[in-house]
Amino acid sequence: MKKILLLLVFGVFLLSSGMLLADNEGMEEEYDEDIYGPEEPIVWVKPVESVVFEHKVHTMGAELDCESCHDDLFAMEAGAAEENEDFTMATLYEGGYCGACHDGSSAFASNTRCTTCHIGVRGHMRLIGGDGDEGDKH
């Protein structure tokens, strides 16, 4: 039980590392999905496992409105971006998708701080409550 709790706490910490402009006061406010978008983090597994995006960090935290990204950069429809062939780091570096802001001036550049968004298989497992793969167990 303790271990699960610990895992959860780690998971939360991990996600919070992605909150570039998150301020703690804002966090205490009620989260309204109509204003801020879905509360559940989005996890992309294509083209590589696994990248996390949180509306919360960007809307409530960084005070961006929906129009900042929708529908120009991302379609509203869940999982749509993942299906696009150009949903790659190369596109991001050219200002597509996340790269529109994550360019080093508005927000940290897409080619830095990889693990902020790339939570990997381990992070993903933790997020969905599976066991992380432990190196010393078989």
């Binding site: 895992l7 381990r122 933790r126 992380g132 432990e134 190196g135 010393d136 167990k137």
Partner: peptide
């Protein structure tokens, strides 16, 4: 004591 002890690893047992 696992091989990579004391390295601040996450989800890594402190003791086997």
């Amino acid at each position: 004591v696992p091989a990579y002890h004391g390295m601040g690893l996450v989800d890594y047992p402190e003791l086997l």
